[in-house]
Write a protein that binds this DNA or RNA. Structure first.
Lengths: 340, 340
DNA sequence: TTGTATGCGTTATCAG
DNA sequence: CTGATAACGCATACAA
């Protein structure tokens, strides 16, 4: 299956020309008389010729593939990002090789390395790998892009969507509703995005918000499990690091008999489709994944063409989407719990 | 980036041996004296050598990649399937090239063809392509696998999880709860899985269930939008073709003031994680995606090794998971609607 | 056991 | 404009 049985040589023979001529008309490079070109095209069609990307890659040094590494394939957030990247890439004739680290930060460098000579470029989506791994990769891999993480240095080139800013606006919303104590259901500690969110909440102390850090995780189950711990701190708002975590928290709160938003407000991050259909519908931050993916691809295209890239370009920031899961803080700012 | 700068020749020179020897120790084929082998390994490490998959592919005819085509990347169902396939594939040293048809059934054949000479095999997940496209592909592509669709003929080899059976059991559940009129929120008409589900519901007429076909679609929005039409048929149960569609229906029913399950029961298909966290939690059919993905990969492995494959192997069937979105049918089997 | 030489399918560089 | 032919990096018969 790897090599189609009909090769450029077959086409050349069928058309009565040299393989060089066939190569020219197929690749569209160089000039060939219309007559010959047509003859070659017919022969190619007749034989059902398809050039071998392998051989072409060996000759040109380009594979027509880009690698995309994500920490979690089961997250709707990354799935939509992949979808967006893949759609853009395909328009430029590139295929997408997908890799998942399954949140094992220490494995990411090796995973990415495993496709080094196989792809023309690599997009790291929210990489959790340590900073020095990232630096090492940036040195050896010229065509590397960091999505939703800014490295400490100026390499690799990166793009992110103003995570801390968005989060700060979410904090302002909550503060405006009278909230003071807000528990942050934190995600993976290796996640730069997660750290940005927490940084924003710490910054919101200046607004009069009192942030409480609760280790949780990004998944639905993580949010569900961390809710009891979070509620023990008697917050009036639960700020989750992700939509799934927020949805998990909603479930647990319902079990606990806590009303949302009367007793406690809940917010997410990402605006996955299920956030809109939660009950109550989730206040969250909308990340424009199609745009973000397209912009990331646009940078990658520059990298592939060895053009200068605009590092850390402006991106439409995440927008706070207010739904029914947030409301005014309850009167007595803290109350005792009356559940078992 | 396509070709690492250090090649097998460099390693050979560094180790003072021929490239053949290097090739042998790197690939682990053929026999090399322990002394030389060690020398080569050291040289390779020192130089940071990584064999070029392209060149190797050209020489061997294998690329170490498999293509995976799905109709929708934004569906949690397919994402988890991809995750499972990718994990299995990686264990065997294969990379995964992901393609999405975005539900354009007529594009699927061409999409798959675009990676013909680039991969060693192709897994078609719930392909929507017409049957003759499927047949044509099966003829030209020896290493093709059909996941969650049985072709009309006996090629390509296929694996599916007993969709109609599972659906029939769901119907039995509803019938046991006293339901008679059940509206089926149908998915994409090109989807074999969707047709299987409807076939099961038609079969359930023998049980005394009266199935009503309502065109909808597989997404949350599809389910949301089709709910009004479905409710106009005065069913006591809404049977959705997918979990997302069911969740969309739940949202619309809440807006309409219909209580679930008191006024109407709702079921989904797939058991995505958000089904469990819906409100009310969704009764659905659990598809064991990790197992299914692993089994599919196991078949693909046989195909790659040119071993005989067991076509349509037994698979753990989908299980009905009863949650709070289903309940006894309301007394007056049909009632008039009192909403605007 | 080791090395030499050829081929894999294309592109690209040269001559003609 | 066209056709030989040399890479590309690796695997592998074949020879030593």
């Amino acid at each position: 299956m790897a090599h189609g049985r009909v090769t450029i040589t077959d086409v050349a023979r069928e058309a009565g020309v040299s393989i060089a001529t066939v190569s020219r008309v197929i690749a569209g490079r160089g000039s060939v008389s219309l007559q010959l070109a047509e003859r070659v095209r017919l022969a190619a069609d007749r034989l059902g010729y398809r050039p071998s990307p392998l051989a072409r890659g060996l000759a040109t040094g380009e594979t027509g593939m880009v690698g995309v590494l994500v920490p979690q394939l089961s997250s709707p957030y990354f799935q939509e990002l992949i979808k967006a990247i893949g759609a853009s890439a395909r328009q430029d004739g590139y295929h997408m090789l997908v890799l998942e680290s399954d949140d094992r930060a220490q494995d990411e460098a090796e995973l990415a390395a495993s496709l080094y000579n196989q792809v023309d470029g690599i997009i790291l989506c929210s990489p959790r790998m340590p900073e020095d791994d990232l630096q090492r990769m940036a040195e050896s891999r010229p065509r590397l892009l960091c999505l939703n993480r800014y490295p400490v240095g100026d390499r690799p080139p990166a793009i992110a969507h103003g995570i801390a800013d968005s989060m700060l606006r979410m904090c302002e919303l909550l503060r405006g509703l009278g909230h003071r104590r807000a528990a942050f259901l934190s995600g993976h500690p290796d996640s730069w995005a997660n750290r940005e969110r927490w940084r924003a909440m710490e910054g919101a102390a200046a607004l009069g918000l009192e942030p409480i850090h609760v280790p949780a995780g990004p998944t639905v189950d993580d949010g569900y499990r961390a809710t009891d711990t979070a509620m023990a701190t008697e917050p009036t708002a639960l700020v989750a690091t992700s939509d799934p975590a927020a949805l998990g928290a909603l479930t647990r709160l319902r079990e606990l008999g806590r009303r949302v938003p009367e007793d406690v407000s809940v917010t997410g991050y990402g605006d996955i489709v299920f956030a809109h259909h939660a009950c109550p519908p989730l206040t969250t931050i909308r990340v424009h994944r199609p745009e973000l993916g397209a912009q990331a691809w646009s940078m990658m295209r520059s990298l592939l063409a060895d053009e200068p890239v605009r590092d850390r370009p402006p991106v439409r920031p995440g927008e706070v989407v207010v739904r029914a899961s947030t409301g005014p803080a309850p009167d007595g700012s803290t109350r005792s719990r009356d559940e078992a």
